[in-house]
Write a protein that binds this DNA or RNA. Structure first.
Lengths: 348, 348
DNA sequence: TGTTAGCACTCACTTAGCATGAGTGCTAAT
DNA sequence: ATTAGCACTCATGCTAAGTGAGTGCTAACA
């Protein structure tokens, strides 16, 4: 029993119909709707074969067939037509570019919003991450009568500011001087490299301002912790409720729970970072509450090792073709915007 | 017809029972469960009166009664017992304090999480906002070969960093010098005050680095825009699905939609900022999709004009007493943590 | 005059039974 | 190899009857 052309046509018809209607597809529907030139009885025989091969299944005896995860897999890998973005969709993507987006988190929010409103699935996006472990700049600034501001920037421009309250605030010159020293001491360092020796040398150097030592070390730790925690933006979670697959509230609830625990998503995005495009169908997902979902992710690159990921979650019955084209379009979009983000300041 | 003691007892019984069971309460239930020393027939008569007065209502003829919004209002204003936090709850709140919380957004996230897990409602919290319009510090730092870093801090320590890419990056001394000048020029300024004159003076001062002018002005604008946009953290949205009130998916969907549009919530929190505690019951809410919900908000203060708000959304049938005690406990908690947030660095 | 027992009535909810229709698998004819 | 025909399955929708929680009303009672 081989997967001949006709079987593939029928499988394709089943998948298309099921994606559209969310109802099990019967042989007669196919015979009427898709002009394959064969009768429903023949289709029935072929469907029986397709089921035996594991590409489709029956929710219950005497109902139509629905695609199995394996069926979707075949579809995604070989059958699916690459869809071009419609004008409307392109325009929508453009509208994100054209706006004056100057802050990365705002860009992330907007991107997630656009993807979910275009696809009607739940979308998420992680910020571009590269060389975070290494310190690029660490500076001390005057803030007010009781505190100073410590600014830490990592190699990939992830940055965090820390307010440090002091008993005695040094004068401006002294603050800058300490800042300079800190910078010389830590520039290029990974956190793990900061050993006893460096710390005690720093303590001596700080002299009467040695009370700065502990908050500085703590700020470094906090920055590195935060840097390791990938920022994730999500949008359109409510879309889940619109799909008949989740009309069972308890299912929707458990998926929501997973989505609220960002760790799971972060892991997922991290794992998919090495692939340009990744499609996980149903049971291919390792997370239990996502066994009925498909997750599609696409990776955007700023440089070889500075990457982020965008993705969507939806029912396995999803419009793979559309989602993939939207994600691809969006990857190009983000890469363009991110490249311009800082350049723009020059001539904008 | 007056609201005598017995009527109040009965109303209280109805509300208590309904909060617990989510089922309409009948006269016989009250007679059996609450020993008021009167028969179900008498209770029926009183209930009839209470309905006429608008405190309770029947979902349909020949069903038990449920409290009306007016009934809840009376309950919240006069009948409700102030509940103390249980040991378990107190412990839970403590667990948030005791952790090393050094970043304000992390504190916000954690607080929202704790509130929603204690109450099982959806919680949200806005960051403390005070004198944001006025610039406290504005500094320029070296970043790398092609860009400099502009740090802007407002009076209430809201801060934002901006990467500015340049054709020619000045040397460190020059960068600091320009930074000093910027700081002198803008310190204490509100954005609106920055007029032509200041700008042209700045341009002259920048001299060969006048390409800095536009990105700086843009960064100022962006910072002020972001400062005005109140940061909001939400948690436990999925809890909504657990309540029978929202077993109708379409209702849940429209509420989700509202919650995802943060603007609505921000407005809501802003409006309630002048009250220490605010309870909006059902139809008292102005937002359509929240007409079946109650919103409880509490305001925390760092100083007279630096405030933020925490709140929860749930079905009108909610445990007002518990929520209020949790929110009050949390307000104290936040105020304490925020006051310590920066001090901590001194001795921690 | 307030309270209570009793009774008729209402209405949501459940269950069972029946009809319907979409769909399958099998068989025999083409 | 294909197809028409037929028996069979099963989800779904509809109706009718039964159940039970609850009310309102009335008449009797303290």
């Amino acid at each position: 029993m081989s997967l001949n052309d006709r079987k593939i046509q029928i499988l394709q018809a089943i998948i298309n119909d099921y994606i559209e209607t969310a109802e099990p597809v019967g042989s007669r529907t196919i015979a009427k709707k898709y002009n394959l030139g064969i009768s429903s009885a023949t289709i029935r025989n072929e469907m029986s074969d397709l089921e035996e091969m594991g590409f489709i299944m029956q929710p219950h005896a005497s109902s139509g067939r629905i695609p199995s995860d394996l069926g979707y897999r075949l579809y995604v890998d070989h059958l699916m037509k690459k869809r071009e973005l419609s004008l409307e969709e392109q325009g929508y993507l453009q509208s994100v570019i054209s706006r004056d987006i100057s802050q990365i988190d705002y860009l992330m929010e907007e991107t997630a919003r656009v993807i979910s409103s275009l696809t009607n699935y739940t979308s998420f996006i992680s910020e571009p991450v590269g060389q975070r472990a290494r310190i690029k700049q660490i500076r001390l600034l005057p803030l007010d009568m009781v505190s100073v501001l410590l600014v830490i920037v990592t190699e990939d421009n992830f940055m965090k500011n820390h307010v440090i309250k002091l008993g005695v605030v040094p004068d401006e010159d002294k603050i800058f001087e300490i800042g300079m020293y800190l910078n010389r001491a830590f520039q290029g360092c990974a956190l793990q490299q900061i050993g006893r020796e460096v710390i005690s040398r720093l303590q001596i150097q700080l002299g009467e301002y040695s009370e700065l030592l502990r908050p500085i070390l703590r700020a470094l730790q906090a920055t590195m912790d935060a840097a390791e925690k990938v920022q994730l933006h999500m949008s359109g979670a409510r879309n889940i409720l619109a799909f008949p697959e989740f009309s069972d509230i308890s299912k929707a609830k458990s998926l929501f729970q997973t989505l609220e625990e960002k760790d799971v998503l972060v892991t997922l995005l991290e794992e998919s970072k090495s692939n340009d495009l990744q499609v996980l169908i149903g049971s291919e997902n390792t997370v239990q509450s996502m066994k009925d979902c498909s997750v599609i992710t696409a990776t955007y690159k700023l440089s070889d090792d500075t990457r982020g990921t965008i993705g969507i979650v939806g029912p396995t019955r999803m419009d793979y073709s559309q989602v993939i084209s939207v994600l691809n379009g969006m990857v190009q979009n983000i890469e363009k915007v991110l490249r311009n983000l800082t350049d723009d300041n020059r001539d904008g």
